[in-house]
Design a protein around this nucleic acid. Sequence first.
DNA 1: CCAGACGTTGTT
DNA 2: GTCTGG
DNA 3: CCAGACGTTGTT
DNA 4: GTCTGG
Length: 228
Amino acid sequence: MCGRYTLDISEDKLTTYLKTYYEIEQEIDHRFNLPRYNIAPGQRIITILKDGDKFRSGPLKWGFVPFWAKDEKIGYKMINAKSETLASKPSFKHAFKNKRCIILADSFYEWKKDKNGKTPMRISLKNRKLFSFAGLWSSYQKEDGTNLYTCTIITTEPNEFMESIHNRMPVILTKEQEKIWLDPYINDEEKLNTVLRPYNSNEMTAYPVSTIVNNARNETVECIKPIN
DNA sequence: CCAGACGTTGTT
DNA sequence: GTCTGG
DNA sequence: CCAGACGTTGTT
DNA sequence: GTCTGG
């Protein structure tokens, strides 16, 4: 599963990143408060989607609320979506065809179970670069008529590397895979499914961190500090 | 047909 | 809205 | 994901 | 146990 992650990059550098890879000229909202060391469900997160031929970056609340929901609380239960069943679940099938997005990150946390209980692990790419999770988004109309925009992170079976830590992992996309995933003109299930695969084990790395990260109120750099 | 759920993970 | 179960 | 609350009425 | 909030 994937229920916590980081985006350890300055506002300036992320601005450059968005321009370089996605031709996005927008400013980053200062309220994102970058860098971030403990991003949790329920928060507004930085995402990218494709609007026609242009990429757009925007904040989406993490926790998918289907447009037909009676109550937005359901979002707290929909922070992840199983890649294997996206096309058949009433909650996700529409978004799978029409509302795909990616979520920018540079690492994520998983709690590894051992004899002592749970140890939070920080997992990132060996090259330490930013990457993106595959996601789905939704627009939900609230009672007061305003819209709530939400998203979910897609999970898959673990690769060889992740197996020792957890039984699921988020779908991480290469830049090539992102092109397919974000292309609004593609809606062929089989084609889309080809990118929803576990990431290359050889490019991933992990280390244990302090349980400071357990509490989502703790947002300091201590969250990513290695422990013995 | 209508009613009621619609989700994931991990734990029991 | 759409699917499953009765 | 984990942490922390989880209830009502009436009175201060 | 189960829901809400971060």
